[in-house]
Design a protein around this nucleic acid. Structure first.
Lengths: 140, 140
DNA sequence: TTGAATGCAAATCGTTTGCATCTCA
DNA sequence: TGAGATGCAAACGATTTGCATTCAA
């Protein structure tokens, strides 16, 4: 399965527009969670024709989230961050600068699955967020 | 160590005002995360003199967060939720209704502590968030 | 008394919506 | 061609700020 922006859009029955392709490009190059403002400013700087509209960015992110191309990430910031939905992983976030480190851990997933079965009120757990917060070596 | 609203305020060198006491009361009775709007409406309904101002609620929550009396919780809602900073625990949140279930799990804390030591970019991890999202038995 | 806390109005910020126009398929 | 995508202006909701007033200590 190819993962070029065009392929992703094709696969999800989305029209291949310049903005959408550019947004996917940005996410795949950046590799860290981004919010609408950041994507928008990257679009403006980037070679994307015309520079795209801020509202279109919001709409694009929203569509990508619905199509599960992007995944929302909870970083305790004032705006909503997204990242490409690739392998399941979590983040360590520097509360001072914007450094983000990814990590994955099978053990945690197992424990969470077990917790899910123990819940008294929930029967259908679909997702979870797990992020660590602290100071990176530079900011510490 | 007593934990009446007055004691908490005293301990944190905060003036004991009617609104602050009422807000702490609400949090200790409710036991689930609350956002500013909810606290405000509870204040209005409650016996709190005058009913307090919405802005004051925001300021109160903010002060309590700074003083670490309250802890911010990320529930993927449109507003910011807080809860009393008591024992460390996590949440299972219904994405349809407002049901929230608490859970704690020592095993996870251990694994996270180990992950923290393995990080290449971070040296000082202070906190983490872990919330599960799904549908409760009623909404499922 | 006095600095901190509150109330009110207005500003700000992130995000959404209505509608006319444009563009991919 | 026609449904979906975009742009622009305006609306919106959550949160913050400036400033005058009130209140706990």
């Amino acid at each position: 399965m190819r993962n070029e922006p065009e392929d992703i859009l094709e696969r999800n029955n989305l029209k291949k527009t310049a903005t959408r392709i550019a947004v996917l490009d940005i996410f795949s190059k950046t590799k860290i969670p981004l919010d609408a403002k950041t994507v928008w400013s990257k679009l403006k700087k980037g070679k994307c024709a015309k520079g795209a509209n801020e509202v279109t960015v919001y709409r694009t992110l929203s569509v990508f989230e619905e199509e599960r191309i992007l995944k929302r990430v909870d970083l305790r910031k004032d705006s909503v961050y997204f990242e490409l939905k690739t392998e399941h992983h979590h983040h360590i976030v520097c509360t001072k600068c914007d450094t983000v480190e990814d990590f994955e851990n099978l053990e945690i997933e197992k424990v969470l699955a077990r917790i899910a079965t123990k819940s008294s009120k929930f029967i259908n757990i679909k997702d979870h967020s797990l992020e660590l917060f602290g100071l990176c070596k530079t900011c510490n």
